[in-house]
Every structure is written in structure tokens, then in C-alpha cells.
Design a protein around this nucleic acid. Structure first.
Length: 417
RNA sequence: GUGGCGGUAGCUCAGCUGGUAGAGCCCCGGGUUGUGGUCCCGGUGGUCGCGGGUUCGAAUCCCGUCCGCCACCCCA
């Protein structure tokens, strides 16, 4: 049988690395500039961590987790999202005793068992930014702005920022009751899917695409109109920080999240260019009860995650692989061991250097040299080496043993004798 | 998980009213040229996703299966 990458997984080949490096690099740069420190958490966690935080009724927990038992019978789950693990690490290592907020970011693979499509994979990478230990609405705005900054650096255009507040444990329960009552009154206009959500997670009925259900929901109470005073003030503050930062957004009163731990501010960056199903390239929100739900002290937090593959597909830049500094071609009479020793010296001096390893003809080697876009080509024929820099030969041939020293000197670097 | 469409060379595809596979690009070689470009010539490369069935004969028709894409669902 032919072996292929498992369904929904992805090989990222060398030719695709420049773009990927640019995406990850933009995140790293922006994180460093805003004082977010990198965090790495395990690829798998106790299953309980995700069940408790995402919510037993969430789609992630119900049908998308890669859960398995290890040899000692522990139930483990391949991380489907990154926030709960960070919160777990925050509690486990006592980060609540460090100066707050603790600002972290990660670039890690996530795992969800769902039907794959372009831009949606079972193993996919996420860039995530989290700020834990502060309910300052300025942080919500900062985090939103940081993704905008990453977009700017990658020349991602045409993204819309959708924003909403979904309240906290003071105001949401009462709202959910009102929504439930409304849904019960309009039961006849709902479809099966909407009824199921009305039972399990009423806010999520707003996710529907059915025109009929949408129409039925048009008159439904929205959370935005039902916020308690502190939530209202917090949201107003977030908006004023965004306004001051010149960050445009669209208020979407029906915007909700699929995971249970979100409170107050929620948002999505939507890029229609990617196609309806994968349009969301970044999503986040506040999660003021998450840390205490996993046994830590009451700790507000806020953060977002972006899909590395989707961000890459949206990027306007087309980074090219790094050009070589030197490519050395040689004919059959040349002393190849000595030539390759010179290549090694060039590398030791910090120059990107390579030679043919495919038994190519001299012409083939020159073609290969062109592909590497090497600025300098050294042509070794017998005992003599000719240096060709920027398309023109240097008049005087040199000896093979002088190659590295000569080129390193030209580049302002030193070689070992 | 459900439904629709699609899998032929490394890539993009043609061939599909059944008669044992082609093109362009890429790659390698030769020639030309100003020895990295151009142009010309030649060459390597395919169990036609996989398995079964129908048939004298299947890339082509049928069934199953795997994978991809699209929609639903959901999300990053």
C-alpha cells in the first residue's frame, strides 16, 4: 500500500518554509516588542483539562478530541486549543505570584478531529497570545492591536474585525433565561440544529446560517443589550482604547464563541478572501473565570489564537529563500576533496556556501549555481580557480587552497588558517 | 458525521461513446551562446489512488474503499 500523510495533516516542504518563517517570525517580533514571553506546553494533557474548560457541550469536546489512554490507563488528549494549557501552567507553576499580568505567546500544533478542508486541518498550528492576571480593558485592546500589527507586517489586507461582549456570571445567566424563553416562543421557526443548541448552549444558536432561523432570531434579545453595569463599562472602555488606537471594528451583537470559558469581550478577524468556511483567521476573547475553574485563584485573562496556515494563505508577501553567498563548481580534473574543504572553511567563516553533489556536468553545475542565486561563483578547472562575482570574472585565477581566505576577506570575514 | 464533485508523470492537465497512456512545465544530457540567461535537439520519469466486478480486452463502465476539494456542522 502507498503510505500517505494521515487525513487532515500537512507536510510543510522546504519551499514553503520562507512564508511560514515569515508568519512565525512576525509573531515572534511583535511578541518581543510588546513583552510577551514564549511558552511551550505539552502536546497532550489530561483529558479533564479540556472537558472542564471548553465545556462538555462544546463541539470540541463532544466530537473533535484525539483522546487516548496511555499504558498506565491515564486518559490523555492531544491539545485541541492552547489557552487552557497555558492557564494550567500558570496555576501549576505559581505564575500568579509573579508581577501581573503575565503575558505569554505560543506557536504550537493543535489537534481536532473534524472534516478537513483547505485551511482546516486535523493537525494545525496556532499562534496564541495570552495576558493573565489583569482585567484591564486596555489589554483587550492591546491584544487586538497586536494581531493587527502582525497583519500589517505580513501585508494581510481585507480583514474585518468583529467585536462583541458576552457578559459575565452576573449578567449572562439572566440573559440566557430570556433568550431561552424567546427561543421557546419561536420554536416553530427553529430547525433541528437550533433546537439542539437551544438546549445545550443557547448563545450558539446565533451561529446558524439558515436564513429561516436567522429571521426568527432577528427579534431575539441580544447580550449586548443585557449587560450588567460593570460589563457595559468594561466593554465601553475596550472600545475607547480601540478607537484611540485607530483600530476599526464592527459590533456584531450575535458574535459568540464555541468554548465555554469566554466572558465579556470576544472578537474575530474575518478574511472573506479565504472562503466562507475558513474565513476566521484569528479569534479571541476574555476568560475571567478560566484560571479558577482549573483550581487557581480568581484570575482574569484575555487572549487570542490565529491559525498559522490560514494567516499564511492570507499573507500578501511572497518571501524568497535566502540566496547563497558562494557556489563552487569544479570539473573532473579538480581535486574535489580539497575544494570541498574550502567550502567547509567558507561556511565556518559565516558564508552560505555549497557545491554540486549530483554529478552534474560543468554546464549543469553553472545552472545549479544560478538556481541558488549565489552572488559569487568559483569555477575550479584542474589546479586553477576562477572567481566570478556579480556576473564578471576576476582576472587573476587563484589556487584552490586560497579560495576560502580570498572570498572571506572580500566579505570582510576571517578564516582559520 | 452527512451530501456533492474530483483523484492519470514531481507539478498543471489531456485521453473517458471500452482496444494495454500523452502534452506543457520541472529535472538530466548535448548543441548554440558572452561557461549563471535565451534558443534548438535528445533523454529520465506513470502498478492511470487502492481493491474487487463486468468484458476477449478497463485509465475509460459498475461496486467498495482511501485521499482531496466544496457545502452542512463547526471553527483557527
Amino acid at each position: 500500500m502507498k503510505l500517505e500523510a494521515p487525513k487532515g495533516t500537512l507536510d510543510v516542504l522546504p519551499a514553503e518554509q520562507p512564508l511560514r518563517d515569515a508568519v512565525v517570525g512576525a509573531a515572534e517580533t511583535v511578541a518581543a516588542l510588546a513583552a510577551y514571553g514564549r511558552i511551550l506546553t505539552p502536546t497532550f494533557e489530561d483529558t479533564e483539562l479540556f472537558v472542564r474548560t471548553s465545556g462538555g457541550g462544546s463541539d470540541v469536546v463532544q466530537k473533535e478530541m484525539y483522546t487516548f489512554e496511555d499504558r498506565a490507563g491515564r486518559s490523555l488528549t492531544l491539545r485541541p486549543e492552547g489557552t487552557a494549557p497555558v492557564a494550567r501552567a500558570y496555576v501549576e507553576h505559581g505564575l500568579h505570584r509573579e508581577p501581573q499580568p503575565v503575558k505569554t505567546f505560543y506557536v504550537e500544533p493543535m489537534y481536532r478531529y473534524a472534516a478537513p478542508q483547505k485551511g482546516r486541518y486535523r493537525e494545525f498550528w496556532q499562534i496564541g497570545f495570552e495576558a493573565m492576571g489583569s482585567d484591564d480593558p486596555a489589554l483587550d485592546a492591546e491584544l487586538i492591536g497586536l494581531f493587527r500589527e502582525i497583519e500589517r507586517r505580513l501585508e494581510i489586507g481585507g480583514t474585518r474585525l468583529e467585536l462583541n461582549s458576552i457578559g459575565d456570571r452576573e449578567c449572562r445567566p439572566a440573559y440566557v433565561e430570556r433568550l431561552r424563553a424567546y427561543l421557546a416562543d419561536h420554536d416553530a421557526d427553529l430547525d433541528e440544529d437550533a433546537r439542539r443548541k437551544a438546549e445545550a448552549s443557547p448563545l450558539r444558536v446565533f451561529d446558524t446560517k439558515s436564513p429561516r432561523v436567522r429571521e426568527a432570531l432577528a427579534g431575539a434579545p441580544t447580550i449586548a443589550d443585557s449587560l450588567c453595569e460593570p460589563c457595559r463599562e468594561h466593554f465601553a472602555a475596550v472600545r475607547s482604547y480601540l478607537d484611540a488606537g485607530g483600530i476599526d471594528y464592527e459590533l456584531v451583537p450575535t458574535l459568540v464563541r464555541g468554548l465555554d470559558y469566554y466572558t465579556r469581550t470576544v472578537w474575530e478577524f474575518v478574511n472573506e478572501g479565504l472562503g466562507a468556511a475558513q474565513a476566521t483567521i484569528c479569534a479571541g476573547g476574555r476568560y475571567d473565570y478560566l484560571v479558577e475553574e482549573i483550581g487557581g485563584p480568581p484570575t482574569p485573562g484575555v487572549g487570542w489564537a490565529a491559525g498559522v496556515e490560514r494567516v499564511g494563505m492570507s499573507a500578501g508577501i511572497e518571501p524568497e529563500p535566502l540566496a547563497l553567498d558562494v557556489f563552487v563548481v569544479c570539473d573532473e580534473e579538480a581535486d574535489r576533496p580539497r575544494v570541498l574543504a574550502e567550502v567547509a572553511k567558507l561556511r565556518a567563516a559565516g558564508l552560505r556556501a555549497d557545491a554540486d553533489h549530483a554529478g552534474r556536468s560543468l554546464k549543469g553545475q553553472m545552472t545549479q549555481a544560478g538556481r541558488t542565486r549565489a552572488r559569487t561563483i568559483v569555477r575550479v578547472e584542474g589546479e586553477s580557480a576562477t572567481v566570478r562575482a556579480d556576473g564578471a570574472d576576476v582576472p587573476e585565477p587563484i589556487e584552490i587552497r586560497q579560495i576560502a581566505a580570498t572570498l572571506a576577506a572580500n566579505a570582510g570575514r576571517e578564516t582559520e588558517a
